[in-house]
């Protein structure tokens, strides 16, 4: 697995098209490209990030984002900024991308990563676009170092978000679990593609570990799911359903925060 990752990483370095010169001012209209911008670019290169990056519940760079201009992803704002390059989400910003290109701006649509190899490839891609290949290589290596085979005794785990939602393979959730040395039990719950778990199923099949988020922005009914007394009672009775909290924002995107999340999860699981 490690070899494949390294090979893929090397391949993407050579397939990414480098720009003639490093762009002086780069704007990002996607939360995940925001993160990469913060981690790979020179501070002077950052022209603007999305307003979402200022939310601590959504971004690990929230404090830094306070000192940077923000945008709401709309074409007029970016035209006013007049950046050399715009980083966008390939799926989420399609109309804006078309509009900006029509106005002659350089826009790079970046895909959403769902596996570690994809994360590393994108890190290299963005690094090349920013003219920050060496920084990208360092980050990519640190991420690649996380890969490890899953031992057969790995405890079973489930990521459960408010409302009982289990994220599917289109997110980095399964990757997070695997890298942390946990066996993803979503398929055994019939949730291989993601979906909603039931409290009853959790009580009956008791994953050893429940991974939940840390954000709390006011009250919602969705919080009642993980607070259901039956889960606490089951934990008391059999010891399963041990709940571990990991910052959602850290693994929402493929960036260095993912590494922090993996390490934090590993430590939490191994703690007594």
């Amino acid at each position: 697995m490690r070899a494949a990752v390294l090979l893929l990483a090397l391949a993407s370095v050579f397939t990414a098209t480098p720009l003639a010169a490093a762009p002086a001012r780069v704007a990002s209209i996607n939360l995940c490209t925001d993160a990469l911008l913060f981690e790979l670019a020179d501070p002077a290169q950052i022209a603007s990030v999305t307003h979402l990056s200022r939310e601590p519940a959504l971004s690990v760079h929230a404090a830094r984002a306070q000192t940077v201009a923000i945008n709401r992803g709309r074409a007029e704002e970016l035209i006013a900024l007049n950046p050399d390059l715009v980083l966008a989400g390939a799926g989420s910003n399609a109309p804006t991308i078309t509009l900006l290109r029509r106005f002659g701006y350089e826009v790079a649509p970046i895909a959403t990563a769902a596996t570690l190899p994809e994360v590393i490839a994108i890190v290299h891609e963005v690094g090349a676009l920013l003219g920050q290949q060496s920084r990208a290589a360092t980050l990519a290596a640190a991420l690649a170092a996380l890969a490890a085979p899953l031992p057969p005794t790995a405890p079973g785990a489930l990521i459960v978000q408010p409302g009982g939602y289990v994220p599917g393979p289109d997110t980095l959730g399964p990757t997070l679990l695997e890298l942390a040395g946990l066996r993803d039990l979503a398929p055994t719950f019939g949730l291989a593609r993601g979906g909603f778990a039931s409290v009853e199923a959790l009580v009956l099949r008791q994953p050893a570990v429940i991974v939940r988020g840390t954000r709390s922005m006011g009250r919602a009914l969705a919080d009642d799911f993980l607070a259901h007394p039956a889960l606490a009672a089951a934990h008391r009775a059999r010891g399963g359903l041990r709940t571990v909290a990991v910052n959602d924002a850290a693994w929402a995107c493929g960036s260095s925060a993912l590494r922090d999340a993996v390490l934090a999860l590993r430590a939490a699981v191994q703690a007594p």
């Binding site: 409290v199 009853e200 009580v203 009956l204 259901h228 007394p229 039956a230 009775a237």
Partner: peptide, 11 residues
């Protein structure tokens, strides 16, 4: 099964 009883009683 204690789990089943738990489901009956708590849910």
């Amino acid at each position: 099964d204690a789990d089943v009883l738990l489901i009956l009683r708590e849910i």
